[in-house]
């Protein structure tokens, strides 16, 4: 197999730390590459990234292209666009995937513009299929599937006539594979000529806190909505989460109302989650919220309104007041566990 027509992943790293979404994308790229019978490639840009490159191979990268330069330690749009665009032109992948992070959403459109190719933002699914238009059929096209219109519709976008087909993919929607230490891949150092004019941006200061809430990795989530009513009542949500070893989530409405901090937000503008169990307390179930949690293995909905849409996707429904239901839940769990 040649590198041409590969499925390529843009690896997002900062100071040697790789974004989780990039590893999730390698997993998805493997799946797509297998269907297309092509290789998985990746492009890693930074300063001194050989060690990072070695750590990435076991996730299933056949060929990993690295470009190193001291000016590339942190992401800035102009030099990164130049470097990645040249790697894409040289190796001609048929698909390039980016994480839909602030970095991915900054660089991918610039590259798409430079290459004059299509780009679909914030995909929640990717598939391979055929596309027919005006009597012409394109085979093995990338279906770029994303919510649009505030989550009211799901659109399947294709860009069959120009290569590569490019998409940004939201964090947490693709599952992360376990690395396989015996996997053999190749690291190829590439060089791209860069001059001082290629570095117009200077990062003066950066303040970044690790998320205090790890919703993405949570197996059990207890989430509260506006129906919880008050900060005081939201304590019940915290208590249930604490009792059953879960993480506290929230709908946007609850965050906007100040019941809980934004770190807890699940949904289209928050975190996408896929826990083993999702307990929705006082959440009506807007499309935006459902888009971030409907892949949960089990859903329990607790709401006083029996007509709330959340009941339509739940496995268990309890119509009742949280102030009664949650203490009963905790009591039962403590008795049985």
């Amino acid at each position: 197999m040649t590198t041409k027509n590969s499925v390529m992943v843009f690896i997002q790293q900062d100071d040697g730390k790789v974004a989780e979404v990039s590893i999730e994308l390698i997993g998805k790229a493997r799946e797509l590459a297998k269907q297309l019978n092509v290789q998985v490639t990746a492009v890693l840009v930074g300063n001194r990234v050989q060690k990072v490159a070695e750590e990435l191979i076991p996730y299933g990268v056949n060929r990993l292209f690295t470009v190193e330069h001291k000016g590339l330690a942190h992401y800035t749009p102009v030099p990164y666009t130049k470097v990645v665009t040249q790697i894409i032109k040289k190796h001609a992948p048929q698909i390039v995937l980016y994480g839909a992070t602030t970095t991915g959403r900054d660089i991918a459109p610039r590259i798409a513009s430079a290459l004059r190719v299509g780009l679909t933002a914030d995909c929640t699914d990717l598939q391979i299929g055929d596309y027919t238009s005006r009597g012409q059929t394109f085979q093995n096209v990338l279906y770029q599937i994303r919510p649009a219109f505030g989550g009211n519709i799901i659109a399947t976008i294709v860009s069959p006539e120009r290569k590569p087909q490019m998409a940004t993919v939201r964090e947490g929607v693709m599952k992360m594979d376990q690395p396989d230490a015996s996997f053999k891949g190749e690291i190829i150092q590439e060089s791209v000529e860069l001059s001082p004019e290629d570095f117009p941006s200077e990062i003066i200061e950066r303040v970044q806190q690790e998320k205090s809430v790890n919703l993405k990795g949570a197996q059990v989530i207890v989430a509260g909505g506006i129906g919880v009513g008050s900060r005081e009542n939201f304590e019940l949500v915290h208590q249930l989460a604490h009792a059953i070893g879960g993480t506290v989530g929230a709908s946007r409405a609850a965050v906007d109302a100040g019941l809980v901090s934004k770190d807890h937000q699940v949904g289209q503008t928050g975190t996408t989650v896929r826990p083993r169990l999702y307990i929705a307390c006082g959440i009506s179930g807007s499309v935006q919220h459902r888009a971030g949690m409907d892949e949960s293995a089990r859903i329990i909905a607790i709401n006083t309104d029996p007509e709330a849409p959340i009941f339509q996707i739940a496995n268990f429904g309890i119509v009742g007041d949280l102030k009664e239901v949650i203490p009963r839940f905790i009591k039962a769990f403590r008795a049985k566990a």
Partner: peptide, 18 residues
């Protein structure tokens, strides 16, 4: 370069609720 292949209205999945 991008074309809309199809649009699905969001339909709530109902696998049966207890």
């Amino acid at each position: 370069p991008t074309k809309v292949r199809n649009i699905d209205m969001v339909v709530l999945k109902s696998e049966g609720i207890r």
